[in-house]
């Protein structure tokens, strides 16, 4: 995992988000797009994203940190992942 740079990580998370949550071809999601606060991802569905991140990056994110705010964009998700990668 150390090999992967930030942009690669963002691309990987973005791909997963689009595959898992976005059905509508008209919708364009970027790194900044608010996911939960704009209704693309409902907070119940976060659980699969969490499992994906934990498996993919071999990290453990405590439930208290997996908040709708922290998961609200690809950027913030990758920032969160990075905190746990570094440790």
């Amino acid at each position: 995992m150390e090999e992967m740079n930030i942009n690669e990580m963002k691309e990987m998370v973005l791909k997963y988000v689009i595959k898992e949550y976005i059905d509508d071809d008209d919708v364009t999601i970027t790194y900044e797009t608010p996911l939960i606060s704009s209704g693309y991802v409902d907070s119940f569905s976060m659980v699969s994203l969490l499992v994906f991140l934990e498996n993919k990056f071999k990290i453990k994110i405590p439930p208290s940190k997996a908040t709708p705010e922290a998961f609200d964009s690809v950027n913030s998700i990758v920032a969160l992942v990075n905190q746990y990668l570094e440790k």
């Binding site: 059905d23 409902d42 119940f44 569905s45 659980v47 699969s48």
Partner: peptide, 23 residues
């Protein structure tokens, strides 16, 4: 993912894990 609001409230009050599938 499109279930009614009342189901969502019921799930919020329950300690079981929750996940969703595409409509």
């Amino acid at each position: 993912r499109l279930v009614h609001a009342s189901i969502i409230d019921g799930m919020r009050l329950c300690s079981a894990q929750h996940d969703t599938f595409k409509h």
